[in-house]
């Protein structure tokens, strides 16, 4: 905890220097970030941004708990979103809403399972299969919204809008869904044999094998959960405003990478992942407020996040070194 505080202060200090270098007042800028993130005007935005980030962080934390890195979150997220739109456009009414969510989950789960099977059957590392499969998925979605699913009335690469009854017009349903998933993850992790076995695998692959844990089956199962959740996040975002799939809209905000960092930072611990993800989300949404009020580009908050993680990674490495001197 002390480490976190110290590194946080160090990152803030570095950020202050950067801010001062651009001619801004660091204190004002930081104040703008805080009020922007948690003030009455900004809190809604923070929550809206936190939903996909927390969702993706949890999605990537699930396999990470067993020491497996899913680098293909972007592809799974995008496939989930486009599948939800495809279904939502054709199935009307409340049923369409459910069907769209299910389609998103299935698309993400199936796609991530393919990457898992590539490792367990073909021996290509998961890190690589997930990453490489991500790009074709993004290209596929980009193709769909340019040709077969394109909104004819627009020059942008985007799909048609969902019908009015297949929409999340408010934040609450998505927020509730993701929160429920986080709770389920925390409970499964701490209180079930399956969660225990996942943690055992994370402690050491050889220990897990020795203890009788079936790694290939676990890999496929965890990746299916991970991809399914990423797909759900995609579906939730797609069902929300502006109720359509816009090419790149899920990639540019860096939900996946920020989520991955939150998960890595918390060593995939459910609660820690949640806290880290919310913190990053707040920082990012505060960045918009800072840009409005001080003219400092909001990208600075992305810099702050990355610097914070670099400091934390180095600090935990140092602690580990001290604990077991070579």
């Amino acid at each position: 905890m002390k480490t976190v505080a110290v590194t946080l202060l160090a990152a803030l200090a570095l950020g202050a220097i950067l801010l001062a270098a651009t001619g801004a007042n660091p204190l004002e800028a930081y104040q703008a970030i805080v009020t922007g993130a948690f003030g009455p005007d900004g809190f809604q935005d923070t929550l809206a941004y936190a939903v996909p980030v927390v969702g993706m962080a949890t999605a990537l934390a699930i396999p990470l708990r067993a020491g497996m890195v899913n680098l293909g979150g972007e592809g799974q997220l995008v496939l989930g979103a486009i599948s939800a739109i495809a279904v939502g456009l054709h199935v009307p009414g409340p049923l369409g809403l459910v069907a769209a969510l299910v389609a998103g989950v299935l698309a993400g789960a199936l796609y991530a399972s393919i990457a898992a099977v590539c490792e367990t059957r073909l021996g290509v590392p998961l890190l690589v299969t997930t990453l490489l499969l991500s790009y074709p998925a993004m290209s596929f979605a980009a193709y769909l919204v340019r040709f077969p699913m394109r909104d004819e009335g627009s020059s942008l690469p985007q799909s048609d809008q969902l019908p009015a009854d297949v929409r999340f017009t408010e934040l609450a349903p998505g927020l509730f869904l993701i929160a429920a998933v986080v709770v389920v993850y925390a409970v499964v992790d701490a209180r079930t044999p399956a969660g225990f076995e996942t943690r055992v695998t994370g402690w050491g692959p050889r220990f897990a094998q020795y203890a009788g844990i079936d790694r290939p089956a676990l890999t496929v199962r965890l990746l299916a959960c991970s991809g399914g959740l990423a797909g759900l996040v995609g579906a939730v975002v797609a069902l929300g405003f502006p109720y359509r799939f816009i090419d790149g809209a899920l990639i540019t905000p860096q939900y996946t990478w920020i989520g991955l960092l939150a998960a890595l930072l918390a060593a995939a611990n459910p609660l820690g992942t949640l806290v880290a993800a919310v913190f990053f989300a707040a920082l990012t949404s505060g960045g918009f407020a800072m840009e409005r009020e001080t003219q400092v580009p909001r990208e600075l908050t992305a810099v702050l996040q990355a610097v914070l993680i670099i400091f934390l990674a180095a600090a935990t490495g140092l602690l580990r070194k001290r604990r077991n001197p070579a």
């Binding site: 055992v200 402690w203 050889r206 020795y210």
Partner: peptide, 9 residues
């Protein structure tokens, strides 16, 4: 160390 136990757990 690696097979029989998980040192960090």
């Amino acid at each position: 160390v690696e097979t029989g136990s998980a040192q960090g757990a």
